[in-house]
């Protein structure tokens, strides 16, 4: 009886994909833009996406999840300095919910720390979409995101691995996100069990 009671009253496990508020996070890998869109849906309010002017790969309005297009603003500064300035300024502004940036070079320690301070000032979450191996050690969490081929025709699988976490554990999740709503479905990994199942207690 007590076990059942404890089970029902147990707080729901925190969603592993919730980014800590007022901190700057990093995401890399080929599926980082999908991860960024999921995070956009989890942050109600204006979203700023900072990407260099010469970046050809840009979000497409018709493919974005519903309701995101009208609160998304694109900033296309010319150089890396301007880009970082824009990110800092946007993080410092209170009304912005989420700032997504695609820096072209590795963030220096100074830049990473400044962004963290700006995020703490404005209580804004930042997400840096970094290239492989360009992470900054000032970031709160670092994710590696990649799309995974699905066995079923109607699922779009992603594997999001948390490689670095300053305030928690790391982990890796395979999930199904179809790109339209904020709902993600965790998928239990299919695999062969190398040990016999434990006998029921």
């Amino acid at each position: 009886m007590t076990t059942l009671h404890n089970l029902t009253r147990r707080p729901a496990a925190a969603d592993p994909f919730t980014l800590t508020n007022a901190r700057v996070h990093e995401a890399g890998g080929p599926g980082r833009r999908a991860f960024a869109l999921v995070q956009c849906l989890r942050h109600p309010g204006p979203v700023l996406w900072v990407l260099p002017a010469h970046e050809p790969q840009r979000p497409m309005l018709r493919g974005l999840p519903a309701g995101l297009g009208e609160r998304l603003m694109l900033l296309t500064p010319k150089g890396e300095t301007d880009l970082l300035w824009c990110v800092e300024e946007a993080l410092r502004a209170a009304p912005v919910a989420l700032v997504i940036a695609e820096p072209q070079q590795a963030l220096s320690l100074t830049a990473g720390r400044r962004l963290q301070l700006a995020a703490e000032t404005g209580r804004t979450t930042g997400l840096m979409l970094i290239r492989e191996g360009q992470g900054s050690s000032a970031c709160e969490t670092r994710w590696h995101c990649e799309p995974v081929a699905a066995t079923a025709a109607d699922s779009t699988l992603h594997r999001w691995s948390l490689n670095k976490n300053k305030s928690g554990t790391i982990g890796s999740w395979t999930l199904n996100w179809h790109g339209a709503t904020a709902a993600v479905h965790l998928v239990s990994p299919a695999g062969e069990r190398c040990q016999p199942a434990e006998p029921p207690r």
Binding site: M73, K78, A90, A93
Partner: peptide, 27 residues
């Protein structure tokens, strides 16, 4: 107030990187 603050942010960004670089997507 939030709208004002967002407009201020757009002004600050636009005065440095140019108002044609602070963009919005319209269908």
């Amino acid at each position: 107030r939030q709208e004002d603050a967002l407009a201020d942010l757009v002004s600050r960004l636009g005065n440095r990187i140019g108002f044609d670089r602070v963009l919005r997507m319209v269908p």
